[in-house]
Computed example of a mutant assay.
Amino acid sequence: MSTSDIPALAEHIDQLIAEGRAHEVPAEQLQALVTAATRLYAAANEGAAHASEPLRDSASTTDAVVLTCALLKARDLNPFDLALWFSRSRVAG
Protein backbone atom coordinates (compact mmCIF):
# COMPACT_ATOMS: atom_id res chain seq x y z
CA MET A 1 0.00 0.00 0.00
CA SER A 2 1.28 3.43 -0.83
CA THR A 3 0.27 6.86 0.41
CA SER A 4 -1.76 7.25 -2.79
CA ASP A 5 -4.11 4.49 -1.51
CA ILE A 6 -5.15 6.46 1.56
CA PRO A 7 -7.74 8.69 -0.21
CA ALA A 8 -9.47 5.57 -1.58
CA LEU A 9 -9.61 4.07 1.91
CA ALA A 10 -11.09 7.28 3.31
CA GLU A 11 -13.66 7.36 0.49
CA HIS A 12 -14.63 3.74 1.17
CA ILE A 13 -15.13 4.51 4.86
CA ASP A 14 -17.25 7.57 4.03
CA GLN A 15 -19.37 5.38 1.75
CA LEU A 16 -19.92 2.79 4.50
CA ILE A 17 -21.11 5.55 6.82
CA ALA A 18 -23.35 7.15 4.18
CA GLU A 19 -24.95 3.78 3.48
CA GLY A 20 -25.58 3.20 7.20
CA ARG A 21 -23.27 0.19 7.20
CA ALA A 22 -20.67 1.29 9.76
CA HIS A 23 -22.00 -1.29 12.22
CA GLU A 24 -20.94 -4.02 9.77
CA VAL A 25 -17.25 -3.34 10.39
CA PRO A 26 -16.00 -5.98 12.86
CA ALA A 27 -14.69 -4.53 16.13
CA GLU A 28 -11.24 -6.01 15.54
CA GLN A 29 -10.95 -4.31 12.16
CA LEU A 30 -12.19 -0.99 13.53
CA GLN A 31 -9.67 -1.26 16.37
CA ALA A 32 -6.85 -1.97 13.90
CA LEU A 33 -7.85 1.02 11.75
CA VAL A 34 -8.13 3.48 14.65
CA THR A 35 -4.86 2.21 16.13
CA ALA A 36 -3.02 2.59 12.83
CA ALA A 37 -4.45 6.08 12.19
CA THR A 38 -3.57 7.16 15.74
CA ARG A 39 0.00 5.91 15.44
CA LEU A 40 0.37 7.49 11.99
CA TYR A 41 -0.87 10.87 13.24
CA ALA A 42 1.43 10.77 16.29
CA ALA A 43 4.47 9.73 14.24
CA ALA A 44 3.83 12.35 11.54
CA ASN A 45 3.55 15.15 14.08
CA GLU A 46 6.24 14.16 16.58
CA GLY A 47 8.72 17.01 16.67
CA ALA A 48 6.98 18.93 13.89
CA ALA A 49 7.04 22.71 13.98
CA HIS A 50 3.24 22.75 13.72
CA ALA A 51 0.81 19.88 14.29
CA SER A 52 -1.32 19.06 11.28
CA GLU A 53 -5.09 19.35 11.61
CA PRO A 54 -6.28 15.84 12.50
CA LEU A 55 -9.86 16.11 11.23
CA ARG A 56 -11.68 17.29 8.14
CA ASP A 57 -14.79 19.43 8.48
CA SER A 58 -16.90 16.36 7.72
CA ALA A 59 -16.12 15.02 11.23
CA SER A 60 -18.57 16.71 13.59
CA THR A 61 -17.77 17.94 17.07
CA THR A 62 -19.79 15.00 18.38
CA ASP A 63 -17.70 12.58 16.29
CA ALA A 64 -14.52 14.08 17.76
CA VAL A 65 -15.78 13.91 21.35
CA VAL A 66 -17.05 10.33 20.97
CA LEU A 67 -13.61 9.25 19.73
CA THR A 68 -11.81 11.31 22.37
CA CYS A 69 -13.85 9.71 25.18
CA ALA A 70 -13.26 6.23 23.75
CA LEU A 71 -9.51 6.88 23.51
CA LEU A 72 -9.36 8.15 27.09
CA LYS A 73 -11.27 5.11 28.37
CA ALA A 74 -9.12 2.75 26.31
CA ARG A 75 -6.02 3.95 28.12
CA ASP A 76 -7.68 4.41 31.54
CA LEU A 77 -7.26 8.19 31.41
CA ASN A 78 -9.56 10.84 32.84
CA PRO A 79 -10.18 14.53 32.09
CA PHE A 80 -7.49 15.55 34.60
CA ASP A 81 -4.93 13.40 32.78
CA LEU A 82 -6.07 14.94 29.52
CA ALA A 83 -5.56 18.44 30.92
CA LEU A 84 -1.98 17.57 31.86
CA TRP A 85 -1.24 16.20 28.39
CA PHE A 86 -3.05 19.08 26.73
CA SER A 87 -0.64 21.54 28.35
CA ARG A 88 2.32 19.43 27.19
CA SER A 89 2.90 20.06 23.53
CA ARG A 90 4.63 17.31 21.54
CA VAL A 91 5.21 19.79 18.76
CA ALA A 92 8.61 21.50 18.63
CA GLY A 93 8.59 25.14 19.04
Rank of each mutant, 00 (worst) to 15 (best):
V25N: 05
A43P: 00
T62Y: 07
D14P: 00
N78S: 12
A92Y: 04
L72D: 02
G20L: 08
S4G: 06
D5E: 15
A37H: 01
L77H: 07
A42N: 04
H50T: 09
T35M: 02
A32D: 08
M1C: 13
S4M: 11
R56C: 03
S60V: 05
P54M: 03
H23C: 03
S87A: 14
D57E: 15
I6M: 11
H50L: 04
A74S: 12
A22S: 13
A37C: 06
L67H: 01
T61S: 09
V25T: 09
A36K: 13
A44T: 02
S4Y: 11
A48M: 06
I13D: 06
D5V: 07
A70I: 01
L55S: 07
A64W: 07
A8K: 10
P7Q: 10
A18T: 10
A44M: 05
A51T: 01
Q29R: 13
A43Q: 11
V34D: 02
H12A: 12
T35P: 00
F80K: 15
D14S: 13
P54T: 02
A59R: 12
P54H: 03
P79W: 08
C69H: 12
L84D: 12
A48W: 02
L84Q: 14
D5A: 15
L71E: 10
L82G: 07
S52H: 06
I13Q: 10
A48Q: 12
L16D: 01
A32I: 02
E19Q: 12
S4A: 13
G93P: 05
I6A: 13
D63F: 09
S87R: 15
P54E: 03
L72H: 05
A42G: 00
I13M: 14
T35F: 05
D57L: 14
L77D: 05
A10T: 09
T62Q: 13
M1Y: 15
L9N: 00
R39Q: 11
E11R: 12
P7T: 09
D14G: 05
C69I: 13
Y41H: 02
L82Q: 06
A36M: 11
I17Y: 09
V25K: 05
D76I: 04
T38R: 09
A37L: 08
P54K: 04
A37E: 03
R56E: 10
E11D: 12
E24P: 01
I17P: 00
L67A: 07
H23T: 10
L82P: 01
G20V: 03
A92P: 00
A42L: 12
T38M: 09
D5N: 14
D63E: 05
L33V: 03
L71W: 12
C69M: 14
A49H: 03
L40T: 04
T68G: 13
A8F: 03
H23K: 13
A44I: 00
A8L: 06
S87K: 15
S60C: 05
R88P: 00
A18C: 06
T3N: 15
L72Q: 09
L84Y: 09
E46Q: 14
A64V: 11
T35V: 01
D81G: 08
N78G: 14
T61G: 07
I13A: 14
S58F: 07
G47A: 07
A83C: 12
T62M: 07
N78F: 08
H50V: 07
